[in-house]
Design a binder for these strands. Structure first.
Lengths: 347, 347
DNA sequence: ATGAAAGCGCTAACAA
DNA sequence: TTGTTAGCGCTTTCAT
């Protein structure tokens, strides 16, 4: 028996509280109905006579009854929990997607269980197992690369799955994202059109960024640009790492030219480093970021970047999952949210 | 019966999967032992003979068994879930605390259920109820202000509670944080010592920031400074709002002087706005932030700020909660993590 | 519209 | 060390 003593509101006396002893049965007895009726009153009030409903609600209020969703989930085989796995919770970019996802699901009575996988497949696999033990009704994944074991577990769980932030013709179930290949190409094209002659990269070593970088380099190669110096930094972007990245590039003799960054944060670091060295942006160093985060439009000079509708990824993921959960037909299992280049002052 | 079809690894065939039908009993039968033994093998392996353990583990591996924690939690009255409620999940400052909290708890087999309350007591109350229905073993709260109903619910739940990011002599149960009053005073003192003569504030309208502001203004008053213009912006800090905040102050005729910001993000906005107007930092506008976020040391000029050990709040909260959960004596129920002023270039 | 009864998958005494 | 027996608190047919 676990009980704990909490200070009362007055901060004074300490008395033993029986832990959560108000159950459905207690409410039922108090309302003079069967437990099943209380259950219905809570979950399908339209199936209960108004008079009964009132009595039940009053009993609930007077007891302060809080349903036990562990029991409910076990009995109904629906946990009303949706798991979401992101590489990093301190990366705003993913959190904004999760926020939209979460809000949309909340409206339908689901709660989101958030997990942080880091940028490796192994930790993802472990996390998926952990999270599946809570029997979520559906699961949100970041990226489309998962270990074989992870795929198996997901398959065995028999729940709707949405993979996000990328695209593939053959998703596990559903996929909502955009093409990183096309981003890389489009950025190359954009910078080329702007008349830059030297091109560099400052990128985190995350897999999706690498895809963009590769496409960028290839597109440039197609334009006759063969030397594209790269400054790779560790996976969690920060302003500091952006500064290091540019310093690195400059050390490699990178002259006047444009730098494609794998995130706006890194881009901001590049701008900062340039400024602190007295280099002009964009004349000496032009910069294009990725993400169009909130600050992008407001730093000085304003950041040119690739705009990703992060909230849309969350919303559409929720929407698709909800359709699955309601056994509605899903119009399309591959949803492309696209991207745009927002030309501001840095490139 | 909810079953869903997922593409198999090969992306080809679509076959119905029975949803998670591997239970403890199946594993037990396969291993030729009683269900209880499998349970022990998983939860207290030291109480099981090595030979038996091996057989069980093999059965688990070959079936891909994933325990059902809803059932486990119901039976044992321990969900191995700890709820954490923060005002905003897109505010890095709180998320960093949660990350440390989460990591520490993971080591002891707990998973964190994260909830976002916004900056109001009502939504917090609703969220607490929602979250308690999952029967968490403990709960992490941000701030010390909660509605009466919320306090009641928490009390009734009978679980350990830690309030954070603030201090009070009479916590609900445990509190880990620092004194916002003292921050305000200390900042005033610091700026005064540096020889500034005019003082302003750019602040979000969140309650804890307001406490700091008030203490700052009072301390200044004690020094004979009576006019402290304030630029208040909406609760979610952003670079843009920082810029607006300074613009606002400047419109009020704020001359050369120092500005105390309620977050580093706002401070960065203030610096940016100053720069974009050709004002010198710190000569014309000096700035002190709050938080010492990762970027603070690396923006240009480097930000002077109040350093809060956010990870320590998370760790110590986890530690204290863990002690409660293990029925160990808790040395102190009020834990002050303190703060420091980091003098860099902006003030 | 409501009630009775069975059981979801697991853990926790207690026996053996 | 292992097995047996009861539930945990709910939802869900199936009756009524």
């Amino acid at each position: 028996m676990r009980t704990h003593e909490l200070n009362s509101t007055t901060g004074g006396s300490r008395s033993r509280q029986k832990s959560q002893s108000v159950t459905l049965d207690v409410v039922a007895r108090l309302a003079g109905v069967a437990p099943a009726t209380v259950s219905r009153a809570i979950n399908q009030p339209e199936k209960v006579a108004k008079k009964t409903l009132d009595r039940v609600n009053q009993a609930i209020a007077s007891t302060g009854y809080v349903p036990n969703l562990l029991a409910g989930g076990l009995a109904s085989n629906r946990s009303h929990l949706v798991a979401a796995i992101v590489p990093s919770i301190i990366n705003l970019v993913y959190v904004e997607t999760i926020q939209a996802f979460s809000n949309k699901l909340r409206d339908s009575g689901y709660q989101v269980l958030l997990g942080e996988s880091g940028y490796g497949q192994e930790t993802e696999e472990t996390l998926v197992a952990t999270v599946l033990s809570r029997r979520p009704d559906a699961i949100f994944l970041t990226g489309i690369q998962h270990s074989l074991n992870c795929r198996r577990q997901l398959l065995a769980a028999g729940i709707p799955v949405v993979e996000t932030w990328d695209l593939t013709p053959s998703p596990l179930d559903l996929v909502v994202g955009f093409s990183h290949d096309r981003v890389g190409e489009t950025v190359a094209e954009f910078l080329f059109q702007r008349g830059f002659e030297r091109f560099g990269i400052v990128s985190a070593d995350d897999p999706r960024a690498m895809v963009r970088n590769k496409a960028y380099v290839n597109a440039l190669k197609g334009r006759g640009v063969n030397d594209v110096p790269v400054g790779i930094v560790e996976a969690v972007s920060s302003l500091q790492r952006g500064r290091q990245g540019l310093a690195n590039l400059l050390d490699q003799g990178f002259g006047p030219g444009a730098v494609f960054c794998s995130s706006d944060t890194l881009a901001q670091g590049v701008v900062t480093e340039a400024q602190s060295r007295g280099l002009r942006v964009p004349e000496d160093i032009a910069v294009i970021g990725f993400g169009d985060q909130n600050f992008a439009a407001h730093i000085f000079p304003a950041l040119t970047t690739v705009k990703i509708d992060r909230a849309a990824i969350g919303q559409k993921s929720a929407q698709a999952l909800l359709a699955r959960l309601n056994d509605e037909p899903v119009a399309e299992s591959v949803i492309d949210v696209g991207f745009d280049i927002v030309a501001r002052e840095t490139a």
